[in-house]
Structure formats: structure tokens, C-alpha cells
Amino acid sequence: MNNENLIRLTGVTKTHEGAGGTFHALREVNLQVKPGEFVAIIGKSGSGKSTILNMLSGIDKPTSGEIWIGDTTIHNMDQDQLAKWRRRNVGVVFQFFQLLPTLTILENVMLPMDFCGIIPARERKGRALRLLEQVGISEQADKLPALLSGGQQQRAAIARALANDPALLMADEPTGNLDSHTSEAILQLFKGLAASGKTIVMVTHERDITKWVSSVVKLADGQVVNGSGLYD
């Protein structure tokens, strides 16, 4: 087995059955990601970026092909196994933050620890506070999400994704809802996390993404497009 790559996709195909016949969201995608890499997935709308990310987070399953994360195959797991695998291994960051509105920032970060039970109850609050400090918003801990700016909310969401200390972070257009200045700060944060050992896969439409990430994967019509001309 190849221990050099943390993520390996081989021949991953995803089809949707619709009124107009079979639609291919992904066709025979092969992809490898090494531990600690910060990978950007780019491509036009509808090219399959979110589909591939959802496969990696265990939210969606391929129609055919194999997905290896470390020593584990996740393409043949059922919903329950996937949920349990995801708890330990993947943190997810959304475009629209998706903090729960009736919980404080601190409680939002503690919620995954509560659901998963990996972190002992006594340590949860302290850990959540440290994570908020790490993303730079510890002063906002006791506020409700609605009182925070978009950038602050996304920082809180990143802290929440790190709650159970997963090796992988999946982010679908995490800066898609932020101004360019705030976007840079968030990308900087991701870059720092990657440097500290997290493996990050991020779908993005940002220009000049190469200065933040370690590699770029371009998708077109559900296929990985190799070679030059990334931004056409």
C-alpha cells in the first residue's frame, strides 16, 4: 500500500439518473493528496467540484471507483459507518458558515465534541476556547453568531471543524461569501493549519490561488484537466 498519499481516488465516477437519462457529475477521476498538502479544486460551475469534496467527506458516495483515506476505504461504507468515520477524520467548512443560531460561538465549537464524545466532557470548554484563540476570535466566545461579521463567523466555523482534531479539512468555497481582504485572512489561516500538519482540500473560485496552496486540481465536465491553462 502506498503510504505516501493520504487521499487516493481511483476511477471515481458519479452519475445521476434524471429525466434526460444518465448525467455524469464525475468521470473516472483519479487523484492523490499527500499528508499536509493544501489542495485547491477549481473549475467552472457544474464541473463537479462539490461532488468530489462530498465524496472525500463521506457525505456522498461514488457510483463506481475507490476512495482510500489512509488505510481505510470509504466508498463501500454505509451511512452509519461513514458518519462515525467522518467524526474522527474530517472537519467540514461551508461557504455560508452554518453556525447554529441559538448557540453561542463557544457552544457551536463544543457541539461536535458533544455529538462525538471523543474529547472528554471536562476538556471540551478549554479546548474550544483554545481553538477560538487559534483562529483569533476568543473575545467573541459568548456571543451569538448573528452578532459576528462574516469573517469572524467563518473563523468560528473553522474552529468548529477542528473540534475533534481531524487530520482532514474539507472546505467548499470558504471565501465565496467574504470580501477580498477577509478572504486573504481566511486563506492565511488555512495555510497555517496545513503547515501545522492538517491536510486540506478546498473548492475555490479565488484568483491567484497558487500563492496559498501547494497544488491545484482543475475540473471540467467531471474530469480532471491536467496541464497548463488553469484559469481559462
Binding site: I59, D80, A83, L111, F115
Partner: peptide, 16 residues
């Protein structure tokens, strides 16, 4: 519905 989806993604099981 959206919150339920988010909770599932961050680790909640259907039972929880």
C-alpha cells in the same frame, strides 16, 4: 432542515 444537515455533517448520528 438545514441545521439538521449541518449537525449530521459535524458528526451527529441520525439517532442523536
Amino acid at each position: 432542515i438545514r441545521q439538521i444537515g449541518v449537525m449530521k455533517v459535524i458528526g451527529a448520528t441520525t439517532y442523536q
